[in-house]
Each structure stands twice: as C-alpha cells, then as structure tokens.
Design a protein around this nucleic acid. Structure first.
Lengths: 334, 334
DNA sequence: ATACTTTGCGCAAACGGTTGTTCAAAAAGA
DNA sequence: TCTTTTTGAACAACCGTTTGCGCAAAGTAT
C-alpha cells in the first residue's frame, strides 16, 4: 500500500493487540506507567506495520505543531545572497534532530501578512527571524504574539533573544588592521541603514578608526547604496576625493564596486585597496583575491535553532549570543 | 491580549451569538445552507473578535493540512546558487494566495529521511521537488506515496507531472548561434551527470552542433566537473587542444573557468570566447560581460505551484510543461 | 493475615473543528 | 385551506490523539 495513504490509526493498533488506545499512546510517548512486555509488544507491532501517529490529532490534543517558522525577507536582493540558504541549512539540521519541520514565511519590509497568518493560525511552536530591520514590524508582531522566538541579528527592542556574529568587533578589527597597514584615506560604502546589521557594521568601522586615532571623514561614508548605480557613484566620488582604500559592507556592493573599478581600469591594490565585510561565492574567484571578513551562516542557523528549542522547552537562555568571525587578508589590500 | 494566545474557539463564537457550532462553521466555510442575516452576524463577530479557526482541528476533521512541501537539495553547492531561493519566492506567492504555507524539506542525494518523515507524517497536501536526479529517490518515494506532486525539472519516471524551462532548446539555440558566429572548435564544461538538467543541457549542446553540421569532439566535452579544480583542468586541456570557445553549463563552473582564464591572462574574447548556460548574479558584473542563457526561476516556481494546486483540487493537468528562456549575447563572444 | 503501596492498564473526556441527518418553520403550489 | 417544497438551523457523531482519574491485581511492610 502506498506509504502516504497508510491510514492505520492508534485504535487499529490497540484493537490488534487487544489493549486500549491509552496503553498504545503511553508505550509510544514513554509517559505514564506501562509494563515492559506490553511496551515491547506495541513497539514491535507499530514497527512492523509502520504506524505513524497523525500529527494533526497529536497537535490538537497537545496544542503543539512540531513546526517552527523560518522567516526571511521576500525582496529579491536578499535572495541573491547565499546567506539565508546557508543559514537555513543549519536551522534544518537542528530542527530535524528534534523531529520538527520548518514552515517558511517570507516577509516584505512593510508587509508581514504572511507571517501574521502563520502565527495567528498557530501553525508553529516558535520562530526564527533571519534578518532584522530598524523598528522591525516582524519583531514587534512576534513579541506581541507571545510565541517563543529568536532573531538572527540585533534589534533595539528589548526582551528579545538575539544571536549574531560579532559584526561590530569584526568590522572594527578589519578596519583597524587596514589603518595599521598604512592606509591613509579610507572610504566606506554601505547598504540600507534600515537594516540593523548595516548600522552595526558602520559602527564597527568607526570604532576601528577611533582605535587607530583616525578622525572619520563623514563625506567618505556612503550609506544606503542599495539602488542601482549608487555604489558606482560612491566609488567615483571616493576616488576623486583621493582615497587609497575602499571598504564595502557586503559582497553585493563589493561586486558593484569591483565592476566600476575594472571598467575605469583602476588597479587594485596599487591605486586603491579594496575590502569587504562579508564574503560569499560572488567574489571567490576574483583577481586579485579580495580581503574580507568571513562568517559561518550555517553555524549561525544551527545555534539559533538550538536556542529556540531551549526556549520552547522552557529553559532559560542567554538573551544575547555572539558568534565568531575570521579576517581573511588577501591581495586586494597588500 | 497577545495575538498568538488568542484562544477563542468556534464554541465561544457560537455561544456568544446563541447559535450552534454548525452554523458558525457553515457561515465561515460557505458550505451548507445558512440565512444571510445569520451569516452576517457571524462574520461581523469573528471579524471584531478576530477569531481564527484552529488549523489542526480543521485539518483533523478534513484530513487537510493547508501545507505544501518544497523540497530542495541540502548539499552546499546547491545553496550557493540563488536559483532555489528565487524559485521558492514564486512558490510562496502562489501558495499564499491559496492560504497555504510551505513546509521545507532538505534532501541529500542519498538520504531522504527528512522527506520521508514529512510525508509519512502527513504534514502536507502536496509537494514540489525543486531538482531532479537520475533515478531520483525522492521522485520514487513521492510516487509511491500517492501524494500529488510536481517536479521542477525532468525525470525518466513516467506518470510524473513535470515543469521546467526548455533547457534543451535553449542550449541548442545558443550553441547554434555560437557556431554561426564563426566559432570553429568548441568545448563544453558541465556539472554532474547525476543531475537531469545537466544531461539535458549537454543534449541541447549536441543538438546545436548537429543543427550546424558540426561533428562533436568527445574529448572536448568535459562532464562531471563538480570537484574543486576540475573546471580549471578542463579549461587548461581545452586551450591546449586549441579551442576558440568554451561553453559552461552553469555559473558556478563559468565562474571557475573565468578565474582560471584570468589567472593565465588569456584574453576573452580574442583568444577564447566564453558563454554560460545559466546566469546568476555571480557573473553579473564581469568584464567582459558574459554571453549566457537567462531564465526566470520565480516564474518557474509560481507556475509549478499553480499546477500543484490544480492537482490537489482534482483537476487535470498537463503532464509536462515547458517555459521559455532568453539568449543574452554579450561581449564575451563578440 | 492484614494494611498499605506500587504497578499496569482502561474509561471517558477533552482538543476544536466538520458534516450527514433531522426537523420545525416559512414559502410556494394546488 | 391543505399539501408539498424550500429554507435555516441544530443534534450528534466523527477526525485521531492525549491525559486525569479510577480500579483491580500484585508486591511490600508490619
């Protein structure tokens, strides 16, 4: 018989073994008192006839769904970077161990209706938010919902369990290193300030300068470069101002900067050095190799998921957790 | 009160309005006979008190989950390409319209336990398989399960609803164009022959040659180049054999080929022309711009999801559907 | 031998919806 | 006016689990 149409229920098992549904249920769950021999009979039977409990009935009885919600941005820019997919793999691994499945929710920056439906429908026992915005409507909604959840990234809202790589420190360190290497005039090109991570990276950059006693030049900090062409304009402007180093906040921006530099035949690193705060495959094969920070999104995903399960099971969890990073110094800043 | 803890049930609604649960249920579902005025009272009440039916109870009663399964490869190479994320966005859009949610399943090439759990647990009403392998265990399992499903890609197993871009034709056309442009000796570098799409692309390539009356040189067809370094070796070998054009099956391979060519300072297109059978952001900013085929994964996702819903609702669907493509001729083959 | 505790199991009521059947009242037809 | 049909709504069973409570049988202590 087709596996998916296998409609044997707990009552069938009970009847076949001449015992009650209660006993079968207890044999499976391990809760309540039950004799060893009986348990074995039950287990053998369900193994052989591969009975699997109906999750709806189970969920209804226990008010549990055995699903968690993985929330990611629906805007297409986000879907170009492998970050969320890598991160999701970590989430999936851990969820699988707990016999949980992942329900997907795609949210737009100003439209979280899909998330609302999932939550108000009680289709999940907890949620992981893959990216945070300033004043994030998803975070607000999740908080009000009372559901256990953790955010990957940071948020200004308190009482929210957070996990992230230590972007602040990473960016500070890389910036600091660049200055120590002798860079004199440094520009930063960054993405939307509506994304918390971008603010953190900017702050890390500023801290790095401060650490080295360099006064930041506001004019050389180009933010919100998410529209087509804005990165190219920033590069042009920075070069005109005479910078000898450009730092990009992520690989999307870095890729655009690189294209502009190549087009104008500006040599890296002799004319200008180039570094990025995040690495993905986009830049992997570039000549020269690009100095960059490196993170492990999969680890981030699995760690966040572990925290979530701790919360679901009612344990105390740290309200903020920071993971490491690596600084990869390559030819682009030699 | 917190939204997620809103525990008002159909019985509460019924009591408040002094009617039966049956009537409330019918007012909401629209099934069965019910007076206009009563329906309005019910709708107003549930709107105001935002009652939302418990999906588990609903599912249990109707044997429906209001979830579909989106199955993607768990291997990390796949997660680097934005294809699956883009495709998933299309799926999510359509699913949302139907008030369905997406349950994620990540399968390894030889381990589909996670999928098995989801299906045997009856957690979904249907499934979409994002990629097919030769002799795909997921396809086999899905077929046996009796669950409605569609595969994105092709499969040799019959009786399976399939949808894909017309890779065969696309690759044939691009190859044909290249030959018409005067290319004399052409190499193909491709990925794993365990992936159906790669076989299709190879076949399209061969058809293109045939169309132009060119006899293919087996030695210049490098397949299964998925290990590190294999693409580079293929490039080297092809150049030594004197090719004047290299075609890559996807952007991952093309990116590697490009790196190798740059490293060896081989000029494109004067010494060798370069083209790819799939475009992603990886190559977007390259100088020179790369000739490539272009598809719309999001459209593929939404179309596949529409087919699935037709199947779930018991309608007849075509058992094979092919979507279009675009040929983007750029400087790398001028 | 008696009283008390433990063990193993079943009964029946949830959990929150849907749906086939029944039934009175209202509407339509004769 | 009387019969037939239509309409609106309720009853109760059901979907497949879990779980609090009760109870007899077996085990232990006195």
């Amino acid at each position: 018989m087709a596996v998916g149409q296998n409609n044997i229920t707990i009552a069938d098992v009970a009847d076949a073994l001449n015992i009650s549904k209660t006993t079968v249920s207890r044999a499976i769950s391990g809760k309540g008192r039950i004799g060893n021999e009986t348990r074995k009979r039950v287990m053998d039977y369900i193994e052989e006839h591969n009975y699997v409990p109906n999750p709806m009935a189970k969920g209804l009885a226990q008010s549990r769904t055995y699903n968690i919600c993985w929330i990611i941005p629906a805007d297409s820019a986000a879907s170009e970077l492998p970050f969320f997919q890598r991160c999701m793999m970590g989430v999936a691994d851990v969820a699988g161990v707990h016999n949980y499945d992942i329900l997907l929710s795609m949210v737009y920056e100003n439209d979280i209706t899909q998330l609302e439906r999932i939550i108000s429908n009680k289709k999940v026992d907890g949620a992981i938010l893959g990216r945070t915005l300033i004043n994030d409507p998803s975070v607000k909604y999740l908080k009000e919902s009372g559901l256990p959840f953790v955010v990957v990234g940071s948020t200004e809202m308190d009482g929210v369990t957070q996990i992230d790589n230590d972007h602040m420190r990473a960016c500070k360190e890389l910036t600091s290193i660049l200055v120590m290497k002798g860079v004199k005039k440094i520009a930063l090109i960054g993405g939307s300030m509506n994304h918390v991570v971008n603010r953190t990276r900017r702050d890390g950059f500023l801290l790095g300068l401060k650490e080295q006693g360099v006064k930041p030049d506001e004019k050389l900090i180009y933010l919100n470069c998410d529209e087509a062409g804005s990165t190219e304009r920033a590069v042009e402007d920075a070069l005109r101002a005479g910078v000898d180093c450009i730092v990009c906040m992520d690989d999307g921006i870095c890729s655009n900067a690189l294209a502009k530099l190549k087009k104008d035949e500006i040599d890296i690193p002799s004319r200008v050095k180039l570094a990025s705060f995040y690495n993905s495959m986009i830049l992997e094969n570039n000549q020269p190799a690009i100095t960059t920070l490196s993170y492990d999104p999969k680890e981030l995903g699995s760690a966040s998921c572990k925290m979530l399960f701790d919360m679901i099971e009612g344990q105390e969890v740290a309200n903020r957790m920071l993971l490491g990073y690596e600084v990869l110094l390559k030819n682009s800043t030699m």
